[in-house]
Amino acid sequence: MLAKLPVGDAVEASIDFLTDNFRFIFRGVSSVFEIFLNGLEGLLLLIPAFIFIIAISALAFKLAGKPVAIFTLAGLFLVYNLELWEPAMSTLAMVLSATFVSIIFGVPLGILSAKKEKFRRIIMPILDFMQTMPAFVYLIPAISFFGMGKVPGLFATVIFAIPPSIRLTSLGIQQVPEDLVEAADAFGSTSMQKLTKVQIPLAMKTIMAGINQTIMLSLSMVVISAMIGAGGLGREVWMGIQRLWIGTAFEGGLAVVILAMVLDKLTQSVSK
């Protein structure tokens, strides 16, 4: 019989190594993101709920039409009515931050993978791995690196949600017709000009579809990241589950669904 391979030990050792040796980096990163998350949450809560609801509904009306606007208005009002506005804004801050970080890293990585076949061959299996791995597993390195709280929640969420941003950016850039890229080259574009004037504009639809998926995946991490203290609507659900407060859990879950649907409709209409 073959002895059990020490896969787990190896992973544990490397995570320990990272934590021990780069503690100061993680600490630094952690406090920066903590400030950022709290700031964004505070900012969202600074806006009176009614004004926020009406503004978002108006935006929905402009971007996606009347039915979506009515749904947005009713849905967000329900969230407010259920006294879940505060955790909802906390979750929104988390989702927006995770999406922001995913775009900041995901779009450039996607562009790189579209341009460099070697890089693509390395990163695509990693993305597959990241997406098939149960999301809970990401909580472990997140805690080791950042402790409990919002930042490890953000970290786990980004890891889970970033793949579609990378993948669809890469796809979108690769799908730009060859002759348009050739035309850009033939007229003497620099790589940057080609990217900003031809490839990104033409890949925009696909990139936006990736961002939309990233947002949806971030929302699906809300409950899981609440397990390590990320707060927000996830905490309501998680608390409800732990204490068998079915009503609380359901209300929290409903609010997540409403948020998800509103964000989905809004981002979808942007990408059209």
């Binding site: 017709p177 002759d179 348009l180 050739e182 035309a183 080259d185 033939a186 007229f187 003497g188 620099t190 031809v198 504009p201 033409l202």
Partner: peptide
């Protein structure tokens, strides 16, 4: 790059115009 910009223009079979 200078050569492509100043000396040559290219016309493509499938036009290759930017649709946006």
């Amino acid at each position: 790059t200078a050569l492509r910009r100043k000396k040559m223009g290219m016309v493509f079979q499938k036009f290759a115009l930017l649709p946006n």
